[in-house]
Design a protein around this nucleic acid. Structure first.
Lengths: 239, 239
DNA sequence: CGTCATTTTGAGGTATTTCAACGAAGGTGG
DNA sequence: CCACCTTCGTTGAAATACCTCAAAATGACG
């Protein structure tokens, strides 16, 4: 557990692709000035692995920016089944509320560093700074797209294909920190199952299937190496 | 496509529930001034039933505001299967793009009246008007929530339950125009199937099942009367 | 009123879910 | 440091539900 000591604190980072600017594919980061402005109203928070950050139904006071680590947001259904609505990674924001209450429960999958800011405060700032607000708009559009992609994923009936999509999804998020072909899956199998809307057993069987097909190779439970990217892609896009 | 010219045009309406203002449950509508500002840069467009409004992959120039009617957005998968990502109703906006291209195809399910505005223009206006932009933020948050709700729906395995959720979803949107218990389902069965991620036959069987159970009664193909709301709710929330 | 598309119904195949038991891993306390 | 215990993951077998293919029936439309 190494705590870094950067000389100049930059404040929350938000990565967003523009919603409206038609042909700008570049990933935009907040300007230093904007970061500092956010920093002045935000608080840095550390969450140990497994900690519940907020619960569904409680007053949605804060908005969070994941700075490091992975967060899951979920709902427990009456039947006892759990549905994970999203995994949040560095630069993602979470804390969606409806009628003043959080709509999901948020929990740290790994140790998490986040910034949190009172929504009231943020709203006031945004009303003053259209440019900053625009970043939030873009970010939200990004979230919407991932949510739609996920819905697309859930539409599939075939387990191996879903898992393939999930691995590829995780690859995109981890590529910055790990080797090219080694993908970390820090969440449990049941988390993956709850995210993909399938039973834990199906996920387990799917992993062994992918392994036996020689497409992937597991390095322990929480890391997977892709041996045959082409076939993985094919499985994922096949349908 | 027709262009506007009524006497007192109010301009596009956007309904949005606030994302950030914690305990304000009230549905906010744009102020008259804001509507007029949007109107000055927007064009009213009429789409006959079945018309494709834009296609996935084409340049995402415009953002649309559904004023009347129902729009579906979808993707056709390589296998030939169609996935409907959303149905859009009055006051919803659509035209989500990524890297300058529409991510879905949009098509009018019923005759549709919409406002469309060039994204570049809108972006410029929003950068100047933080309050207006805030409405868009709220609207987008709303879209995100529905997308998540839909993902929740897709997670279910049971056909009757999914259909029950869909009927309830449609009830919420149609209650303004029809009698309390008569719900219009203007889209085809295949559209419903593509939205719920199931086969057309499954949907058909589910409708007959719900009918035989005495929970609903169909008035033709495109309207359904709920006879037993309690059991419908139970089916929908059960899981 | 006839034609065409959509919807319903039927039968069989297949995938996932369940239920159940076993094996592995991680954490805690002695 | 090891043993125990709890949680998580794997594997097996049966049941259920959906999907696919195919054909009949219904409804829409000109």
């Amino acid at each position: 557990m190494t705590t870094r000591r950067p000389k100049a604190e930059l404040g929350p980072a938000i990565r967003a692709v523009p919603l409206l600017a038609a042909d700008n594919v570049t990933i935009q980061l907040l300007s230093t000035k904007q970061r500092q402005q956010l920093l002045s109203i935000a608080t840095k928070v550390q969450h140990p692995k497994g900690q519940v950050i907020y619960r569904r139904g409680t007053p949605g006071t804060w908005l969070y920016f994941c700075q490091e680590g992975i967060v899951k947001t979920y709902r427990d259904l009456p039947s006892g089944t759990r549905r994970i609505t999203a995994f949040l990674f560095a630069h993602d924001m979470f804390g969606l509320a409806e009628a003043g209450r959080y709509v999901n429960t948020a929990q740290a999958v790994t140790p998490v560093t986040s910034y949190r800011v009172a929504k009231e405060t943020l709203a006031a700032v945004l009303q003053q700074d259209a440019a900053l607000e625009y970043h939030f708009l873009a970010k939200l559009a990004h979230e919407l797209r991932s949510s739609q992609r996920r819905a697309m994923m859930l539409g599939r009936r075939d387990a191996a294909g879903r898992l393939a999509m999930f691995i590829i999804l995780m690859k995109r998020h981890g590529s910055e920190r790990t080797a090219d072909d080694l993908i970390r899956l820090p969440m449990s199998r049941s988390d993956i199952a709850a995210f993909l809307g399938q039973s834990l057993e199906s996920i387990s069987r799917a992993t062994t299937r992918l392994t036996k097909l020689g497409i992937v190779q597991f390095q322990g439970r929480y890391a997977v190496r892709v041996l045959d990217p082409a076939r993985l892609e094919e499985l994922a896009s096949n349908l």
